[in-house]
């Protein structure tokens, strides 16, 4: 929607006012979680842009603690579901159980009925359970028996995935991975950060409890503001150029990438890049999106949407390398 300069200025002022909680959240969670600022920012982007986040990384990188702390700081409900090969869809969404006293079936809601869900090791569960969760993520409602139940708002699923070469895993199909707004690679902390972690855990330095710094209504208001953030046509065009360069590299003088890409980013990639860009602008307390916002989220938004060929895999080329080349070739408006 076209906006005048004055409207954008007013929106900017509103965002500066409403975005106070971003710093407060970072500070509060930073007391408990050492480092991992990138992961926290990506969680906030997922939360503000109504998306879900897929995390990939080895165990022990404070994934659970981060989302738990975030839920506490926002005063939201949090549930963790450990995905295992014998998990059933009903274990996630809920089921009907027979109540002998009342002589009727009653609904027993599953752990998905919460604001924050940590779907731990999502690739350990079979496809039908993954589908049930991903459908709930997309539709934001679940059907148990004859009734359909809306899920709470905000609703953020943080799914973690172990490296795929491990045995006994069911890799998420491309179409389902595409439903996550971002795939974030969680890296090891720096040495200094790990030293702090060590002190907290070994030397008995007690961590302060997380205090609520914002409520759900404020988050919902912020989400509404994020939707209103101005995205200029030039930035839209920049997003499209990037996405199209992953699909048709030849059009952007990137012929060398053609044999490396089996499929480019989907239209959902463009949409999510724009949404994540808006949320990033909000985190930077801005009422409009600039190319920097797009570039700062691009790796997390596109890395799971670019299919690589065997040739690329043989040459150890990752989606990030493809994105690097695309960014070098596409002109910034």
């Amino acid at each position: 929607m076209a906006k005048t300069g004055e409207e954008i200025r007013q929106l900017n002022e509103k965002i500066v006012g409403a975005g106070y909680f971003v710093d407060a959240l970072r500070k509060e969670i930073g007391q408990v979680i050492v480092g991992q600022h990138h992961m926290l920012d990506r969680l906030l982007i997922g939360l503000l842009s109504n998306g879900h986040v897929l995390l990939e990384g080895v165990p022990g990188l404070a994934k659970t603690l981060t989302i738990k702390s975030l839920a506490t700081a926002i005063q939201a409900d949090f549930n963790r579901i450990q995905f295992t090969p014998d998990l059933l869809p009903a274990d996630v969404i809920g089921t009907l159980i027979y109540n002998q006293q009342q002589n009727e079936f009653v609904v027993r809601r599953g752990p998905i009925f919460a604001n924050f869900i940590l779907a731990d090791e999502i690739n350990r569960a079979p496809a039908k359970v993954q589908s049930a969760l991903l459908e709930a993520m997309q539709e934001r409602q679940v059907t148990i028996g004859d009734h359909t139940y809306k899920l709470d708002d905000p609703f953020l699923v943080l799914a973690t995935q172990n490296p795929l070469e491990q045995e006994g895993t069911y890799p998420l199909p491309e179409a389902q991975v595409d439903r996550f707004i971002m795939k974030v690679i969680v890296r090891y902390p720096e040495m200094q950060e790990e030293q702090l972690i060590l002190r907290h855990n070994v030397q008995g330095e007690r961590l302060p409890p997380i205090r609520p710094v914002v409520n759900i209504q404020e988050i919902l208001d912020a989400k509404s503001l994020v939707r209103d953030i101005y995205l200029d046509e030039k930035v839209e065009r920049y997003i499209l150029d990037i996405v199209f360069a992953t699909r048709y590299p030849g059009r952007y003088q990137l012929e060398k990438l053609t044999p490396l890409i089996s499929y480019g980013a989907s239209p959902r990639g463009s949409i999510n890049l724009a949404l994540a860009g808006k949320a990033q602008a909000f985190l930077n307390k801005r009422g409009f999106v600039i190319p920097e916002d797009i570039r700062s989220v691009i790796y997390d938004v596109l890395r799971h949407r670019i299919g690589l060929t065997y040739e690329a895999e043989a040459e150890n080329i990752a989606a990030e390398n493809i994105i690097d080349e695309v960014l070098k070739a596409v002109n910034v408006p």
């Binding site: 300069g5 200029d232 030039k234 408006p333």
Partner: peptide, 10 residues
């Protein structure tokens, strides 16, 4: 310049 280009700033 970014303000003018991307935020309709006058």
């Amino acid at each position: 310049c970014d303000l003018v280009k991307f935020a309709q700033y006058d």
